[in-house]
Simulated scan of single mutants.
Amino acid sequence: MGYRLEIEAFNAILGDLRRNFRVYAPVKMKGKGAFAGTDLVAYGEINKFEEIVFNQRSAYSAKEIVFKPVETMFYFTENEYQQPAVQSQNILIFARPCDINAYKRLDEIFINNGPFKDSSYQQQREKVKFILMECGEGFDSCFCVATGTNVTDDYALLVRPTAGFVQCQVKDPELKPYFNGLNENIEITPRFIEKNQYTPRLPQNINNDVFNSPLWQEYTSRCTGCGRCNFVCPTCSCFTMQDIFYRDNENCGERRRVWASCMVDGFSEMAGGHAFRNNQGERMRFKVMHKFYDFHKRFGYHMCVGCGRCDHICPEYISITKCIEKLD
């Protein structure tokens, strides 16, 4: 059972939720698009239901709420260091199934990948609950059905907009009190997309010949190494560290974790001037093999969730789906 509420009634509940949660959703940012006069759909904190963008894919994923593009790990002086205060509020994220499943992949990397856990990520991740946004027909470059990320049961609340009303299913008992006094008057269960506009053939039998295939050289000539595909990807987790020294006291500063990209020149540089993957073809091979071979070999499922953001944002129109279909 579930609830059918007027938008004003749901906004009242949202106001109550915001006393205990930071609430994030895809929102339209005026004038922030890649081209002059265009808008950007990305994640931001919301106050009202009307701010949420349901009919467009967000350019960037929900991962940046927990795994931030730039994050201060600690402050330091000559004699000591101190970690920044941790936000005490819990987090609610409006997200589609692919982005919810992407967090499962990030959990494998930051929390479940050996004896050491990333405490910064884990502290924030433990505060997160998801509000499920359904996909109808998906978007032109999505292939979530092929990767099995079109469905999820990891959500606290299902929200479905319908002609001036909001239909809700409350799955998490912690959120149930926010709906006290309301009658459960509808039957509602999640609707998951069953067929994408395009379904790629995922690689099944990758062997050593693939690593030496001439197909990678195509990307040496095409890819510009801008790294956009990594930065919009909901499962890319690479980062670098930067020490920032303050001008007024060069012995004090902060250490920051900053998103990095395996497709950008210099990512694989090592001490002594050594470097791996010196051209874009080798970098493309590394990225694709990580998404569809290495991660799958370790955890039993593909790292890629088929959101299609990388295809959509590439300035050279490089398609990961066309690439992986050549691997079998």
Results as ranks from 00 to 15, higher is better:
Tyr3Arg: 03
Tyr3Gln: 02
Glu6Ser: 15
Ile7Pro: 05
Ile7Asn: 12
Ile7Tyr: 15
Phe10Asn: 01
Ile13Pro: 06
Leu14Lys: 11
Gly15Trp: 05
Asp16Gln: 15
Arg19Tyr: 15
Arg19Val: 08
Arg19Asn: 15
Val23Pro: 05
Pro26Trp: 10
Lys28Ala: 12
Met29Ile: 08
Ala42Ile: 10
Asn47Gln: 13
Asn47Pro: 06
Lys48Cys: 13
Val53Ser: 10
Gln56Ala: 08
Gln56Met: 11
Ala59Leu: 13
Ala59Val: 15
Ala62Gln: 07
Lys63Ser: 08
Glu64Trp: 00
Tyr75Val: 03
Thr77Val: 03
Thr77Ser: 11
Tyr81Asn: 04
Pro84Ala: 06
Pro84Glu: 09
Asn90Lys: 14
Leu92Phe: 04
Phe94Asp: 06
Arg96Val: 10
Arg96Trp: 14
Ile100His: 08
Lys104Pro: 06
Lys104Ala: 12
Phe110Glu: 07
Asn112Leu: 03
Asn113Phe: 08
Lys127Tyr: 08
Val128Asp: 09
Met133Gln: 09
Glu137Lys: 06
Val145Tyr: 03
Gly148Pro: 03
Thr149Glu: 10
Val151Phe: 10
Thr152Arg: 01
Asp153Met: 01
Asp154Lys: 12
Ala156Thr: 01
Ala156Asn: 03
Leu157Ile: 06
Arg160Ser: 03
Ala163Asn: 14
Ala163Ser: 15
Gly164Phe: 12
Gly164Glu: 02
Phe165Ser: 11
Val166Ala: 11
Val166Asn: 07
Gln169Lys: 15
Val170Met: 09
Pro173Val: 05
Pro173Trp: 13
Tyr178Phe: 13
Phe179Pro: 01
Asn180Lys: 11
Gly181Asp: 09
Asn183Glu: 15
Ile186Ala: 02
Glu187Asn: 15
Ile188Cys: 04
Asn196Ser: 13
Asn196Glu: 11
Thr199Pro: 11
Ile206Asn: 14
Asp209Val: 05
Asp209Leu: 13
Ser213Tyr: 11
Ser213Gln: 04
Pro214Ser: 06
Gln217Phe: 07
Glu218Gly: 07
Cys223Asn: 08
Cys229Arg: 03
Asn230Lys: 09
Ser237Arg: 05
Arg247Ser: 00
Asn251Cys: 02
Gly253Gln: 07
Arg256Asp: 04
Trp259Thr: 00
Trp259Asn: 01
Trp259Gly: 01
Ala260Tyr: 12
Ser261Glu: 09
Phe267Ile: 01
Glu269Asn: 00
Gly273Arg: 06
His274Arg: 08
His274Val: 09
Phe276Ser: 06
Asn279Glu: 10
Gly281Arg: 04
Met284Asn: 13
Met284Gln: 12
Met284Gly: 13
Arg285Trp: 10
Phe286Cys: 11
Phe292Glu: 07
Asp294Arg: 00
Asp294His: 04
Arg298Tyr: 14
Phe299Glu: 05
Met303Arg: 05
Met303Trp: 05
Arg309Trp: 11
Asp311Leu: 09
Cys314Lys: 02
Cys314Asp: 04
Pro315Gly: 01
Pro315Gln: 00
Glu316Gly: 00
Lys322Glu: 15
Lys322Arg: 08
Cys323Ser: 12
Ile324Lys: 09
